[in-house]
Amino acid sequence: MKSVYIAMLAAAGVAMAGQVHADEALAKAKNCMSCHTIDKKLVGPAYKDVAAKYKDDKGAPAMLAAKVKSGGKGVWGQIPMPPNNVTDEEAKKLVAWILSLK
């Protein structure tokens, strides 16, 4: 029984790791990684910094998904983020991934 439990935990870990990589792959496919990295500022803020800033903000997912689609300026400096060619679902998926980073 213990070995079944361990196998289930391992499978869950692999599935979760696959999801993180899938969302990182989406960020790369949509060219988000040309201006952002996971853990250090590039042109835009590091995704971990975004996650930390909005960790307790319940309205952040919707607000950030809208910014991913329409672009924005002024929150992280004067360099604007251009609008991105993503669907609503892709924007939500990207934001969920970003906010999950620690």
Rank of each mutant, 00 (worst) to 15 (best):
A60R: 03
K69A: 08
H21Q: 10
A17C: 07
E90M: 07
G77E: 13
A15Q: 05
D49R: 04
Y54C: 02
I6T: 07
K73E: 14
K102Q: 14
G59W: 14
L42G: 04
L26T: 05
K48T: 13
G59P: 14
K40R: 11
V86I: 04
K69D: 07
N84P: 00
G59Y: 12
Q78Y: 11
E24P: 00
V43D: 15
K102R: 10
P45A: 13
M1T: 01
A12L: 15
A60I: 03
Q78I: 14
A29M: 07
H21S: 10
K30W: 05
P80K: 08
A11F: 06
D23C: 07
P83K: 10
M63V: 12
T37V: 13
Q19N: 11
N31F: 15
K92G: 03
V68A: 03
M63P: 02
L9W: 08
G71H: 07
L101W: 05
Y5L: 13
E90V: 06
D57I: 09
G59N: 15
I98G: 00
D56N: 03
L94G: 04
K55N: 05
K48D: 00
K102S: 11
A27D: 08
A22K: 10
P83W: 09
P61V: 08
K55H: 06
G71V: 08
K55S: 12
A46P: 10
A27T: 11
A10E: 13
P83Y: 05
A22I: 08
M63Q: 13
S100A: 14
K55D: 04
P83H: 08
K28V: 11
G13I: 15
V4L: 09
Y47P: 02
A91I: 04
A91H: 03
G18Q: 15
K2L: 14
M81F: 04
K73M: 11
V4N: 06
K53S: 03
I98P: 02
V43F: 14
